[in-house]
Amino acid sequence: MSSIQRKLFTEKVIRNICRRWQLYVFLLFPIVYILIFAYWPMFGVQIAFRDFNPALGIFHSPWVGLKYFKKFFHSYQCARVIRNTLIISLYSLVARFPIPIILAICIHVLRNEKLKKATQMIVYIPHFISVVVLVGMINQFFNPHVGLYGNIYKMIFKENAADLFAKPTSFLHMFVWSGIWQNMGWDSIIYIAALYSVSLELHEAAQIDGASRLQRVFAIDLPSIMPTIIILLILNVGQIMNLGFEKIYLMQNDINLRLSEVISTYVYKVGISPNGGNYSYATAIGLFNSVVNFILIVIVNKIANRCGETSLW
């Protein structure tokens, strides 16, 4: 670009901005938000490479290089927390991903508008239950002595129920399926919206050709929402190493600790919990986690781009 062209270009941009300034004002807030809450904190990541000392501050604590990364990789917990994180996320992803799609299609296929709205409402309401309450509910319902499950069992069999929590693996199933129960309705909303946008003409044409409703689901509905599905899959895979911290932390107990100690809970324990206080170490682990996530999302995006020509960027 010559200087004249550049000048013209700049003028054009400025003119555009001036003409549609309202839009840019709207844009301002998200940008400021992201700068303050996403970019600015990134400077703090450097404490992963320093021996953080609150009296000296982030910029004056001594550098220690990769000390804390080495410490993590050599620690006895390392393999265990990474393995647990992967197991839980993969299980969640595989079990959780298809269900909202199936649910959305089921709701979409319903003819009665009122029934449709009612179903949708009922399935997405659990999403608003807070995690603490949800875990409390799980503990109460499945308690063998005072819970719903225990009491019903006692009524029928006249003896104490077996303890469902006594097996470490029961944690996995309870964690994943309670999550599915809670979020399937909410997650299906985006698919339902996508299904509404499927052109009616396609359906009419198929009906004239004598396609059944089920055939139309596979031939029209599913392919039409495929881009949405893929984008969401990419986003989900990008979150593989990010398990919700609160729910796991709340569900941990002595029996399931061997399966339930994951990266985020471990970071909390060595970091800001009262017995931890090792900020640098916690940040190093967190940073490692984020880097793995970043790599995963890039890889999946590439794959999606190759195979389905849909991608995030």
Binding site: I58, Q239, G244, G271, Y279, G286, N289
Partner: peptide, 19 residues
Amino acid sequence: MKRNKKVLLLLLIGVLFLV
């Protein structure tokens, strides 16, 4: 979309300190 809240929190503490 949920980001890694823990890291964010730690970093926030860092920022608070800076400020």
